[in-house]
Design a protein around this nucleic acid. Structure first.
Lengths: 209, 209
DNA sequence: GGAAGCTCTGAATGATGGTTCACTTCTTTC
DNA sequence: GAAAGAAGTGAACCATCATTCAGAGCTTCC
């Protein structure tokens, strides 16, 4: 048998695949799903269009992989924060801030994950991941209720509102008069989130009427 | 000059155009923008594909018209309620309820207006209309603050959250255990909205912890 | 070096679906 | 009824990509 894949060859191929996914993610973050053609991705990765099909059976499969990786990272980070230190309300506040900050720092990608038009396969993934984001927020809200820190409510709906709010903020810079900074935006967003969940007052601030 | 459009002929053409828009709206509400082909719309209206181009220069132009009509109706209705009778908090509660109720009653259309994947031209319209929805909610929130009924806050962000929340509820039935009814969903949604804006308590309910 | 078997290439292929256009059909006017 | 001109038709056209594939170029092993 005159040829057998050597371990280093296998590694090279895996690296090529990784590189492809990374480049595809960058392209998607840059121009959105709709404008992402196989050729564009291949060019960006420095390979021929046909070579894409050695790593993925179809464009859709590549798209799904891109989505899963990126969305998975966000879910992981958010989960980390929401199940970490502190009481439920503190965790909720930090969770929102982290979720929104990361989204604002990589708007293109966040938009692609949360809202950008995409083919059916990606749409299905998106539903699934939205549910996960929501489930994470909802769990913290439930803990807050159990701890007597939040009023009785449907945590799923509160969670949906929070996800939706971050999404909306992304879709449009909310160019408020005066062009507020990201920090101000984040502060407003977390304050809103706490009100939304019914927390008594924002920690570290006191601007009750 | 052996031919000149008679008034009744003009009316017939306008009616045909209306009919086309109506049918196109139905198709979009049914299958979404992505699955809406010119042929499908033409079939649904009982005309040939080519005839569509006597009323609209392109598929995109028809899509934009469909979107504008439908979204315009929603903005009008919402504006009516939000600038109507009652104090700002009452109006906000009613506005959310009307907005959400209408969306739930015509999910397909609401989804198309708020979230469904669409071509670029429709996407641009959507941004515009989302801004209008938000502006309406934001104005009521500002009035509430001025009236001392709501705490100081960025009304745009609260408004974004409300729009986002309704959208999220649509995207997924939120199949909560026990399969809550639409009415329960609406009640939870308005309660959440009032908390979100910082209103003291939901009118007609008192479930403080 | 050379055979075997792999990866890589990029032009050709094929499917989809918007758009066009030569032609038919209907309306108006005389 | 006949001419003029518009609306309506639907098969053909065309642009856009995802996908394929025959051949070029490597890598491995004897």
């Amino acid at each position: 048998m005159p040829y057998r894949k050597t371990p280093s060859e296998v590694r090279r191929l895996e690296a090529a695949r990784e590189h492809l996914v990374t480049c595809a993610t960058a392209v998607v973050a840059e121009v959105g799903w709709a404008q992402t053609s196989v050729t564009a991705v291949a060019d960006s990765a420095g390979i021929a269009a046909g070579s894409v099909y050695q790593h993925f059976p179809s464009k859709a499969a590549l798209a799904v992989e891109v989505f899963r990786r990126a969305a998975g990272r966000e879910v992981d980070v958010l989960g980390e924060v929401l199940t970490g230190e502190g009481d439920p309300v503190e965790r909720l506040a930090r969770g929102i801030e982290v979720f929104a900050r990361r989204a604002l720092e990589n708007r293109g990608l966040a938009y692609a994950l949360l809202a950008a038009p995409a083919e059916a396969a990606v749409g299905a993934e998106r539903l699934d991941f939205r549910r996960r984001y929501r489930a994470l927020f909802a769990e913290v809200v439930r803990e807050g209720i159990a701890a007597g820190l939040l009023p009785a409510q449907n945590g799923e709906i509160t969670a949906a509102a929070l996800t939706g709010a971050v999404g909306e903020v992304l879709v449009d810079p909310l160019g408020a008069p005066g062009g507020q900074s990201s920090d101000e935006l984040l502060a407003e967003l977390t304050a809103m989130a706490l009100r939304c969940a019914g927390a008594a007052a924002a920690p570290g601030r006191s601007d009750e009427p």
